[in-house]
Amino acid sequence: MTESPLEALLDNVNVVSMTDMPSPAQLHEALPLTDAAARTVLAGRSAIREVLGRRDPRLVVVVGPCSIHDPDAALDYARRLRALADRVSGTMLLVMRVYFEKPRTSVGWKGFVNDPRMDDSFRIDEGVARARALLLQLAELGLPTATEALDPIGPQYLADLISWYAIGARTTESQTHREMASGLSAPVGFKNGTDGGLEVAINAIRSARSAHGFLGMNAEGRTSVIRTRGNPWGHLVLRGGGGRPNYDTVSVRMAEQALAKAGIAPNIVVDCSHANAMKDHAVQPLVFADCVHQVREGNRSIVGLMLESNLEAGSQPIPDDRAQLRYGVSVTDPCIDWATTETLLLRAHEQLGPALPRRSPVAA
Rank of each mutant, 00 (worst) to 15 (best):
P155G: 08
T228C: 09
S163N: 01
D333K: 15
T172N: 04
P354F: 12
G216K: 10
T332Y: 06
T340G: 07
L236V: 01
E342W: 01
K191Q: 05
L9E: 14
R79V: 15
I268G: 02
T332C: 03
N12T: 01
S23E: 01
G216W: 07
W164R: 00
T171D: 12
A8C: 11
P32F: 02
A133F: 11
R117K: 13
N276T: 11
L6D: 02
T176P: 01
F190A: 01
I264F: 05
A348H: 01
G314K: 10
L325F: 07
D56L: 03
Q351S: 08
F100S: 04
G108M: 10
T332P: 06
L345P: 06
T332G: 02
F288R: 12
T340I: 11
D11M: 15
G142I: 08
S106Y: 03
G142D: 03
N231T: 13
A348C: 05
T340Q: 15
R300P: 07
S17M: 12
L307H: 05
A204H: 04
L138S: 03
L238Q: 02
R300I: 05
Q137I: 04
E350D: 11
E297Q: 15
A323G: 11
A186R: 00
M118A: 02
A275V: 09
H177F: 10
E342V: 10
L141A: 05
I202D: 08
D70L: 05
L259K: 07
D160V: 06
T19L: 09
A8V: 06
S163Y: 00
Q284R: 00
I205K: 06
S224Y: 05
A258K: 09
L259M: 08
V295C: 03
F190M: 02
T2G: 13
M21V: 03
V270T: 00
D320R: 12
I302W: 06
L10F: 08
A30F: 03
L136C: 10
S89W: 01
F112E: 09
Q156H: 08
R209C: 07
E7H: 14
H281G: 10
D70N: 14
H235P: 00
L345I: 09
G64Y: 06
R49W: 00
V41H: 04
N192Y: 11
T172G: 01
A186L: 01
N14V: 14
V287H: 05
T223K: 13
D35V: 13
M21L: 15
T91R: 14
L305E: 09
R206H: 04
A30H: 11
A289E: 15
L286P: 00
V107C: 10
S185E: 12
P32A: 02
D160E: 14
Q257V: 15
E199L: 15
A355F: 05
L27K: 10
S301Y: 04
T91W: 06
A363Q: 14
E312F: 13
A355Y: 05
A181R: 09
A219G: 15
G353N: 12
H28Q: 13
Y247E: 12
L81M: 14
N246L: 10
